[in-house]
Simulated assay, not measured.
Amino acid sequence: MKLQQLRYALEVYRHNLNVSEAAEALFTSQPGISKQIRLLEEELGIQIFIRSGKRVVSVSQPGKAVLELAERILRDVQNIKNIGSEFTEHDSGSLTIATTHTQARYALPAIVAEFVQRYPKVRLSIKQGSPDVLAQMVVNGEADFAIATEALEENGELRKLPCEAWTHAVVVPDDHPLLDCRHPLAIEDLAAFPLVTYEFALNHNNNIARAFQKARLDLPTVALSSADTDVLKTYVRLGLGVGLMAKMAYDVKTDSDLHLIDASHLFEPSHTYIALRPDTYLRGYTYDFINLFAPKLTRTQIDKMLYEPIEEDFSI
């Protein structure tokens, strides 16, 4: 059994059983991957993947157990490498961050610039996606940590480190009727217009949906949803609806053709979290990046929240 074989099998699973995509991601050939997986299956005496002709169509029951252990083994191998690198090459390596477009575009640029200045030898990569996708990237080991909103709380495999809270705002073009409404903005006024907002904004447990429910109003129509704040603003300019987005994503210079209306009083603040696996060995520069993003998160506090057992309260 070779680590390479485990990696190949896991990559096929991660690419929805598409061997060609797995081969492309690993910069190798499809026949090479298929051969190594066959050899692994022969050694184990089981089928990891169920096939129909030449196509992989599903994962067998014992295959699921093998893939789960393979993921753990490869993660531990990476942790061992990280420990060695921390003492031999403490200022070089790689760091992959999974985050939303809003964080990448508006919250991270100054942090990244400072980090790159401190650690010019570290290869920094930023991957974007929805909160659910970001969480899965960390679970799968595709990212070292994720920066996103409270939607990450639903994933029990990750530890969440609380950072800053952020508020919502409404953006509208010139001459929009909301500009003539009473101030501060009332939720009844907002409910009268279709929204252009985030994909997850009106999920059942989201604070935006809760605000409309608390006011006993029907959820407004969503004319367009996107994870990309700049896309939202583009369609607000085209008149599709009222933009509801993170207040920090409004830029006075580039968005001068849009009007910002504060909505922080209408919706509970949203919280930004950093999500990590509790079995991850963090490099020194990873602690520094987190501290740059959230100064209150020192190395001691991060270790306490990440590695100490969670105390369950069973009192009634």
Rank of each mutant, 00 (worst) to 15 (best):
G32N: 13
Q47H: 15
K2F: 09
D91H: 11
A201Y: 06
V12T: 10
F193A: 04
A148I: 01
R159G: 00
Q30T: 15
V57L: 03
F314A: 09
I50E: 15
G63D: 06
F115E: 04
K35L: 15
R283G: 07
P269N: 07
T298E: 05
V242H: 09
V66S: 05
E86R: 14
K54C: 03
P109S: 06
V77Q: 11
L185A: 04
V56L: 05
A146F: 09
T234R: 14
L282P: 04
V222Y: 01
K127E: 14
L134Q: 10
R123Y: 10
E150K: 08
D262R: 03
L266E: 14
F293M: 02
H168S: 13
L3N: 12
L74N: 10
A246L: 04
S34V: 12
R55H: 13
D228Y: 00
L40E: 07
G284Q: 11
P295L: 11
Y106C: 11
L219H: 08
R210P: 00
I126N: 06
V170K: 01
I261R: 04
D255W: 11
P269Q: 11
L244W: 07
T102I: 01
V171G: 00
K2E: 13
V66C: 09
A143S: 12
Y287D: 05
P278K: 05
L297H: 09
F314Y: 13
R75G: 14
S264L: 10
E157K: 13
R159L: 01
K253C: 02
V112Y: 05
A65W: 06
L178S: 08
G284F: 01
H101T: 09
Y250C: 02
S58L: 06
A23H: 10
S225K: 10
N140Y: 04
V171M: 06
H101M: 08
C163V: 12
N205V: 06
K296G: 07
A143T: 04
L40K: 11
S270I: 09
P62Q: 09
A209I: 03
Y285A: 00
A135F: 01
R105M: 09
R72E: 15
A211T: 06
A146Y: 00
K127I: 14
K2C: 00
Y198S: 12
P309F: 11
T197N: 09
Q128M: 15
S52Y: 02
N140M: 01
I290G: 01
M245N: 13
P109K: 07
F289L: 15
I46R: 08
R299F: 03
